[in-house]
């Protein structure tokens, strides 16, 4: 799925200097979070803030700069794969069904939200919500509260009558 970062594309990125200071063959030395940021740059997303390099901090540690990408398409790997780090992507939409379609176009189905401030038609989106489709890879079962407790029981139905 998505736009693969082909060797030719990588070479082009390298040639245009968008990966200044990064030796592609040495990317494996990066912290995973930094590799994800590099991937975003390679895929052509616009880096609004953040960095592809590990921040140098006197006390050491595995730091990643909080990073924001704009102009992202949901087909990109940075939009489809779980980063598990401080990397956000911003995806624009135009039409009414756009946000729900884009939100549901994922192999995952764990969580999400709507922000009324920036989206005047939020209420209608909620009501026009499409039920999610496809096998979803965020898991099986639920935790918390009564439903979470019910994950640890077996039902037993007993019927009795006096002899």
């Amino acid at each position: 799925m998505g736009a693969p970062a082909t060797t030719a594309y990588r070479a082009n990125v390298w040639a245009t200097g968008r990966l200044t200071g990064v030796q592609w063959p040495r990317l494996h030395r990066f912290h995973r979070g930094c590799r994800r940021i590099v991937l975003g740059v390679v895929e052509g997303a616009r880096l609004v803030t953040g960095d592809t390099r590990t921040p140098e901090r006197p006390e050491g540690g595995h730091h990643v700069r909080p990073t924001l990408f704009a102009d992202v398409e949901s087909a990109l790997r940075i939009a489809r794969e779980e980063d598990f780090g401080p990397v956000l992507i911003v995806i624009p939409f135009d039409d009414e069904d756009g946000p729900v379609r884009i939100a549901n176009d994922s192999k995952y189905g764990l969580a999400g939200g709507v922000s009324p401030g920036g989206c005047p038609s939020t209420a209608s989106h909620r009501h026009r919500r499409r039920l999610r489709g496809g096998a979803k890879s965020s898991g099986i079962g639920r935790e918390f509260g009564a439903t979470g407790l019910a994950q640890y029981i077996e039902y037993k139905t007993i019927a009795a009558i006096a002899a």
């Binding site: 039902y155 037993k156 007993i158 019927a159 009558i161």
Partner: peptide, 25 residues
């Protein structure tokens, strides 16, 4: 009978052959 029913690890159990309600899992 009920004491035994509570100890047997099965999804349904009857005491004296009572049929279980169709609401029951």
């Amino acid at each position: 009978g009920l004491a035994i029913a509570r100890q047997v690890r099965t999804g349904t159990f009857s005491v004296n052959g009572a049929p279980h309600s169709l609401e029951g899992p």
